[in-house]
Design a protein around this nucleic acid. Structure first.
Lengths: 144, 144
DNA sequence: CCATCATTTCGTCTTCTTGCAAAATATAGA
DNA sequence: TCTATATTTTGCAAGAAGACGAAATGATGG
């Protein structure tokens, strides 16, 4: 992450939108698949893609491709982590961020392939049945 | 300064513009008159007024009125100071910020009433002559 | 190689932002 | 009160940002 005026402005700008601030907040617990971020933000996939591109462009977020899926995570960069830390501290115990966090915890227990194909409710239902009987699908496509 | 999602977004948004980031950076050394900020940013006074209003609205900057002049300074609020600290750290040793800082040092030696009326060059010329002979005009209208 | 599917890019519309000049507001001093 | 002046507000034009659906891209798995 560069350290000049434009980079600083770009990072601040990137955090200056609720969807993007929520996105970096929900990445605190580790990387997430784009489809998981989309599920939480409840925006069109194209819109989420643009928001994540913005976060990547300014170095706050990194991406890792794994087959069909793209995982995004917080950058290791020190300046980037400072930005995120302050942004989340400034948001305090915002209910929206806590709700997002709870939903993320749910989604982490679901295979991303189910989430993408079936949506939140369908994937959760399959996860509920899959965890009690039959082969657990988490083995192959699970996110982290 | 509130600590919720909207406040955090507003603060980040406010810092996400070069003029506003430069403004908070130049306030590190203490409050400045609006006309001084305007002189450094070299923008229309109405534009600077709007930028400062944005910074005040989200709690990063406070204002103090003294007669005809309005002085702006960094907020004492902890969250606000964190935002400013990170923003400036993210900008690193940006030449623009250093140039601004040098100009601010010059302007602090000039009475604001001269700066507003005569502009930068005229005020500096008067300050140069005033510092060697005659009554020093800094006594009455000086900023800080 | 074809079909599927997660993601990105594109086109379009609407809304917000940024800049300035000009008018309005507020204060100081004669 | 009247004038001068520092700042804010308003009105307007140009450009950017944000949202979506549809089309394009890229990888998987038959």
């Amino acid at each position: 992450m560069d350290r000049d005026l434009d980079s600083a402005v770009a990072a601040a700008r990137a955090l200056g939108h609720p969807a993007r601030l929520r996105a970096v907040a929900m990445l605190r617990g580790g990387e997430l698949c784009v489809c998981q971020v989309t599920e939480v933000l409840k925006l069109a996939t194209s819109t989420v893609s643009l928001h994540l591109r913005e976060l990547k462009r300014c170095g706050l977020v990194t991406e890792r491709k794994d087959g069909r899926w793209v995982y995004v995570g917080l950058s290791d960069d020190l300046t980037a982590r400072e930005w995120v830390r302050v942004a989340i501290a400034a948001a305090g115990d915002e209910p929206q961020l806590e709700a997002d966090e709870r939903l993320v915890e749910q989604l982490r227990r679901v295979p991303v392939e189910d989430l993408c194909r079936l949506g939140y409710d369908g994937a959760l239902a399959r996860a509920a049945s899959g965890s009690t009987r039959g082969p657990n699908r988490r083995a192959s496509g699970e996110c982290r």
